[in-house]
Design a protein around this nucleic acid. Structure first.
Length: 566
RNA sequence: GAGCGCGUAGCUCAGCCGGUAGAGCAUCUGACUUUUAAUCAGAGGGUCCCGGGUUCGAAUCCCGGCGCGCUCACCA
């Protein structure tokens, strides 16, 4: 497959990333430009959330699609721009040192001390976290700080240009505002020379030649004349966006649907300044489990760390790739599904033709180079099988253990020869499954105490297990279990296959009792297999704890401690 | 008020540029040399929200409704 052939197929692809990229191809044809700049915006007024990540992930997918379409002939850059000169408007609920932050309301975020006491400022902290996440995913990007750009003078020319076009900007902005706001609105926000606060005040006079605005402190009445350049003024958000597009020649920037009106206004402004607005599209928002927009300051919805506790980064990328125009609820339930879909797409990739591959999410997630899937073989001639998350969750529950080695014991029983070394990503998957089990499955367990009949049969089961050799097979154990339960009238089943009046079968009720009392579940594994793998000594200990009531009380204590932690 | 999205099996959803409805879970039946569930096979179940239009043909495209949800109208 040559890059030209690939580009030809991509040119026909209905995948959204290619649709977006084709808009850029058209743009390049129109302008003849030799480079394309992608921008993603980030407001560091709170911890970076999953939507921020999603924007970078999706933009990167468009970027890669564009490079495929143009066979790498057009240089591309991705600028992750942090609007860190913005004034702190509200103290986020989910950070420490609330009182301290309150003292600095209104100051540029790069002048607000870091409530975590680790960085030069709150913005520096949040910027660092964002970069951390982006680096962890291996994104290629250039980080840009608004404060740096303003203070270094990189925006000066554009700022002066906007000052000269002050009336045009106002003509666009004012009709979008209510009367009382419109009467005081200014695109330029001077930084107060004494308090350092980003002021929202009416401009009394502009001097385009001197590059200054005149304004008045509303509290003291003191008059000031401030340069719009050099970081002495910040722009209001929409003009700021437009100015950035103008100054940097941004070609592509996507935004959430909450910003549709803003994109239009900023686009009008940049055109009034004499340049084209970037291409872009509006994605739907991420919602929390109640269907509300997730927000940095409220900290609702899933965080990136939370997702990464239970699943690999590429599964989150899959979530971002799929249906960007549809609202998606972001809560824990969607993780197992995302993981299994990812594994399925990965497993299918090798068998697809190139048209199929370009439509396969893993092609976009891994920039055209998805890794080979890790497969298991149940016997030498058996077809390759992939272990999915749902199955692993079952396994972990079956193992009744949060030790990866125990889970691997089950895996090796299925496919001898596999190990953490041969299947590192499967090992990671095992650990994710364990984390998910610990946090979501285990808390849902309900242990009950055994009644007298059950205590009797459990005691006899314990004795039977004690009498077995340590290396008893799963089948032997299973056989003994039947013999233990058979004399107990409650569990006798005369309708069972092979049952006779003298030798009844054992009903499912017996096994259900074991699961409820020993595992806190209504379902469970074949018990002989479980005991063989879990260990006979461990099984006896489990029975002892069930009989003493410890299982139940320990689980209740566990639930209680979770409640307190939350 | 404006914008965006959704409406397909009991539940959660796939159905990519139009070609006689699919998956997972759930339910039911059966297999697995004494009856489990890390397994397998099979079954049942849908006016694809409604009404028009385009077409030989529409879940899919267009128009109009209805219902649900979200977002923006202060700030970012």
């Amino acid at each position: 497959m040559t890059s030209a052939e690939l580009a030809a197929i991509a040119a026909q692809s209905p995948v959204w990333a290619f649709e977006e990229a084709r808009k850029l191809v058209e743009r390049v044809k129109r302008t003849g430009q030799a480079q394309v700049l992608f921008e993603t915006g980030y407001g560091p007024s709170g911890l970076p959330h999953i939507g921020t990540f999603g924007e970078v992930a999706r933009t990167t997918m468009v970027r890669h699609a564009f490079e495929t379409l143009t066979e790498g002939r057009i240089k591309t850059r991705l600028l992750a721009f942090s609007d860190d000169m913005d004034g702190l408007r509200k103290v986020p609920d989910n950070v420490p040192n609330q009182e301290m932050l309150t003292q600095h309301l209104g100051k540029p975020l790069t002048k607000v001390p870091d409530p975590f006491n680790k960085f030069e400022s709150f913005a520096h902290h949040n910027n660092a976290m964002l970069r951390d996440f982006l680096d962890r995913f291996g994104f290629e990007y250039e980080f840009a700080s608004s404060t740096d750009y303003y203070t270094s003078g990189r925006f000066d020319e554009a700022l002066l240009h906007m000052l000269r076009n002050f009336d045009k900007v106002q003509a666009i902005m004012l009709p979008s505002l209510r009367e009382e706001r419109a009467s005081t609105y200014s695109p330029f926000l001077p930084v107060h020379p004494k308090t350092g606060i980003v002021m929202q005040v009416p401009v009394e006079k502009i001097d385009a030649d001197a590059g200054t605005i005149a304004w008045r402190d509303p509290d003291t009445g003191e008059a000031f004349e401030t340069l719009v350049t050099g970081g002495h003024c910040k722009l209001q958000w929409k003009p700021d966006w437009a100015m950035r597009w103008y100054a940097l020649d941004v070609d592509y920037e996507m935004a959430g649907k909450d910003l549709i009106d803003s994109v239009k206004l900023s686009g009008s402004i940049v055109r009034a300044l004499g340049k084209n607005a970037p291409e872009g599209f509006n994605y739907e928002l991420f919602l929390d489990e109640k269907g509300a927009k997730i927000s940095k300051s409220r900290g609702n919805g899933l965080t990136i760390e939370e997702w990464l506790t239970y699943a690999a980064p590429e599964t989150l990328a899959l979530f971002m790739f799929q249906k960007p125009r549809e609202a998606k609820r972001l809560h824990f339930d969607v993780i197992p599904r995302a993981v299994d879909e990812y594994l399925q797409f990965l497993a299918g990739y090798g068998k697809q033709d190139w048209k199929g591959r370009l439509g396969n999410p893993v092609w976009h997630i891994h920039a055209g180079k998805p890794p080979a899937p890790e497969v298991l073989h149940h016997g030498a001639d058996a077809p390759a099988a992939t272990v999915n998350f749902a199955m692993l969750l079952n396994l972990v529950a079956v193992a009744n253990s949060e030790d990866p080695a125990v889970v691997w014991g089950f895996l090796r029983r299925y496919a001898p020869g596999v190990s953490q070394q041969t299947h590192p990503r499967l090992d990671a998957l095992v650990r994710y499954a364990i984390a998910y089990f610990r946090d979501f499955v285990r808390p849902a367990k309900v242990y009950r105490l055994a009644d007298d009949v059950e205590r009797d049969v459990l005691a006899r089961l314990d004795a039977a297990v004690a009498a077995m050799p340590a290396d008893a097979s799963a089948e032997d154990i299973q056989f003994e279990i039947y013999n233990v339960a058979r004399p107990t009238p409650r569990y006798q089943d005369f309708k069972a296959k092979g049952a006779t009046p003298e030798r009844p079968g054992v009903s499912n009720d017996f096994f259900n009792m074991l699961y409820q009392v020993l595992l806190g579940e209504n379902r469970g594994p074949r018990f002989g297999s479980f005991a063989a793998l879990y260990g006979l000594a461990e099984t006896r200990a489990l029975i002892a704890k069930a009989l003493s009531g410890e299982l139940k009380s320990e689980h209740e204590a566990f639930l209680e401690s979770r409640k307190k932690a939350a």
